[in-house]
Each structure stands twice: as C-alpha cells, then as structure tokens.
C-alpha cells in the first residue's frame, strides 16, 4: 500500500502559522471597530456640541479605573507568557488567574456604569433617551454599541484565556508549545488597545 508524507504537510505543527493567523484575525477586528470609529468621527464633527454635552454624563473616574485595570491585565498576561517560557508553570497560572480577575473587575465596573445610566432612562428605547436631541442620541448609541462590542470581546477573551489555562494545567500548553497562550495574549492586547482609543473618545475629549 503506497503512501507519502510531504515535507511541507499542512498537518505538521507550525507555531509560525498559528501566530500569523492570529495577527490576520486581529487586523479584521481592528477594521470591525474601524467602521465604528468612522461613524463616530463623522457624527462628532456634525454634532460636536451635543457630543460634548453628552460626554459630561459619563463618569471619568470609573473610566480611568477601568483603563488602569485593563493595562495591568495586559501586563499580567505578558508576564505569564514569560513565566511559562521560563518553565514556571505555577507562576504562569497565578498570573493568568490575575488576568481573569482583572477582566471580571472591568466587567463589574461596566455593569454598574451602564446600570446607572439605564436607571436614568438613557438607553435606546427608554423614555429619557427618546427625548434627547439627535446628536446626544447618537453619542449614547455609539457609547453603548462600541463599549458593548468591546465588553463582548472582554468576555470572549476571558473564555479564550480560560480554555488556555485548562490546557496549561493539563500540560498541553508548555514553554515549548506556547503558541496558544501567546495568541490569547495577542488577543488580549488588542482588546486593551481598542479600549485605549475608546476611553479618550468617550470620556476625555472636551
């Protein structure tokens, strides 16, 4: 029975390919948010006063805390990659747990932030929102849409990291076979990066 295995078989393990695939996927994520950034800039320039007025409703302190949380979580996941590369599985796991804790803290903050606004009737479909001038409506719609899509990415990222943690635990992801952990780190940095733009756009620009 004849058989043949090619040297360039697609079934070989190829960490380079995995990383390249991840980077390409991150490009698509950037462009997904890119469309929203275009909409934001167009409507900001058309309704600059309304956007300014609406942005005062947002709590800069919670936003700042969340920014610090996310940047720190980016650091912890980067550190866990280094830890695992150096063979310290225990430390790597601690750092990944820390990353998960930060992700959860971010979402809890977001929950309260949104909750207060929704209580005040500021959400598409609610009474207060429906009586706002159109520029402020757009601001809050974009606020919910963009931070909501971002929060969704935090959740997906958290699940991704959770899966990787299980594999680290089982010894399927190790210092030598680290590309899955690296990819979850890349994804997490992207989530972080997008927030770095969302934060000034909604909270800081005056």
């Amino acid at each position: 029975m004849g058989h043949l295995v090619l040297p360039n078989s697609g079934h070989n393990r190829d960490p380079e390919a995995n990383k390249m695939g991840m980077w390409l996927f991150l490009f698509t994520e950037l462009l997904l948010f890119g469309g929203l950034f275009i909409v934001y800039f167009v409507y900001r320039s058309m309704n600059s006063d309304a956007f300014l007025h609406a942005s005062y409703e947002l709590d800069v302190i919670i936003g700042t805390i969340n920014t610090v949380i996310l940047i720190t979580s980016s650091m912890t996941i980067a550190m866990s990659i280094t830890a695992l590369q150096k063979g310290n599985k225990k430390l790597a796991m601690y750092l990944l747990w820390a990353t998960q804790a930060f992700a959860l803290a971010f979402l809890v903050n977001k929950y309260f932030e949104w909750g207060i606004k929704i209580e005040h009737g500021i959400f598409p479909g609610l009474d207060h929102y429906n009586h706002m001038p159109s520029g402020e409506k757009l601001f809050f719609f974009l606020y919910y849409f963009m931070t909501g899509l971002h929060a969704l990415h935090i959740i997906v990222g958290g699940i991704f990291i959770g899966v990787v943690m299980k594999k680290v635990q089982k010894g399927e992801v190790t210092g030598e076979r680290i590309s899955l952990l690296e990819n979850s780190g890349l994804y997490w940095h992207l989530v972080d990066l997008i927030w770095i733009y969302l934060f000034p756009l909604f909270y800081l620009i005056h």
């Binding site: 004849g2 058989h3 295995v5 078989s9 070989n12």
Partner: peptide, 8 residues
C-alpha cells in the same frame, strides 16, 4: 504529526 495515509 502527519501520518501516512494510503495513496491507492
């Protein structure tokens, strides 16, 4: 790893 599969 890639495994050998029949080419017949």
């Amino acid at each position: 790893m890639a495994t050998a599969i029949s080419t017949e």
